[in-house]
């Protein structure tokens, strides 16, 4: 099994999706090596990518001083945790060398806006992941509709 497939299987957000859907997602993700001090996203910039962590540690700094540190293989950094209305709402800084899988924001939103099982699985798992990882992020933006991300 390739790296991205293994990470998707381990991810709390993507682990429930079917094998065929994993194959489709596999083609969309790109892999980046990241290094301590790298800034992957900056508040206010156009939101181009969402990120799936394979290795390393990242700090998500939200407007107002709140933040969350993500360090587990399969942690997903996207949607309201990272963007709102097409712009990044957090600054994402690498604290420890590693690698991330990158998916274009538009491509990801297209997937979750479709009326499919994979969209349902991702959105359900995402809400659980967000509740456990950064429930305070929900206070920042009402993200009830995908196009708000």
């Amino acid at each position: 099994m390739s790296g991205i497939k293994q990470v998707l299987k381990q991810s709390p957000v993507f682990s429930t999706i079917e094998e065929d859907d994993v194959e489709n997602l596999d083609a969309i993700f790109d892999k980046w090596d990241v290094h301590a001090g790298d800034i992957l996203a900056t508040i206010g910039d156009p939101a181009q990518y969402f990120f799936l962590l394979e290795k390393g540690i990242v700090l998500l700094a939200m407007d107002g001083g709140k933040s969350v540190v993500l360090n587990a293989c399969g942690d997903f950094i996207g949607m309201e945790l990272l963007s709102a209305k097409g712009k990044y709402n957090t600054t994402l800084t690498v604290l420890e060398d590693g690698c991330v899988y990158v998916i274009p924001r538009r491509a990801f939103l297209k997937i979750i806006q479709e009326d499919t099982q994979v969209a349902d699985a991702i959105m359900s798992s995402w809400q659980i992941f967000l509740d456990q990882t950064a429930p305070f992020a929900k206070d920042i933006e009402d993200a009830s509709l995908p196009d708000k991300f």
């Binding site: 001090g37 933040s67 969350v68 540190v69 604290l95 305070f136």
Partner: peptide, 19 residues
């Protein structure tokens, strides 16, 4: 960045759960 990460790993700095 590296040293802040060490403080997190050693649990000298810990999250309070509210950001």
């Amino acid at each position: 960045h590296i040293n802040l990460n060490l403080l997190l790993k050693t649990k000298i700095i810990i999250p309070d759960g509210s950001g």
